[in-house]
Amino acid sequence: MSLFILTANRLRDGRVVFLTAHGWEESLRTAIVAATEAEQRALEALGAQSVAMCEVVDPYLVEVEVENGVPSPLHYRERIRASGPTVRPDLARRDGIPEDCRVSL
């Protein structure tokens, strides 16, 4: 069964955020992981609510794997999106992004 988390951009500053039990946060460490279809729909419904409340823009589900309780996106685009520009490590997000989330070349 595929696992998913919900991501979006925060409306007022555009930052990448993930839906956690405490609301939208910049780190995906504690993002809510949906394991069933019903859970995915529930995440999407929460996303739609946040859009209506002008908190976030363009929410969508991201497929992840979970290791030691920490989700990590499967697709390289989403890994880059979660961690910041790979060419500017000084600007990359360090808060809670596991090392193997970084994409190296």
Partner: peptide, 28 residues
């Protein structure tokens, strides 16, 4: 108006684009 919820993203997008503002991978 966008921040106050008077404009949806769909309505706002052409305005921000015509002022050079994109929503990109990490930020605006």
């Amino acid at each position: 108006r966008r921040l106050a919820g008077e404009l949806t993203e769909e309505e706002f997008r052409p305005h921000r684009l015509m002022n050079g503002l994109y929503l990109q991978l990490h930020a605006y």
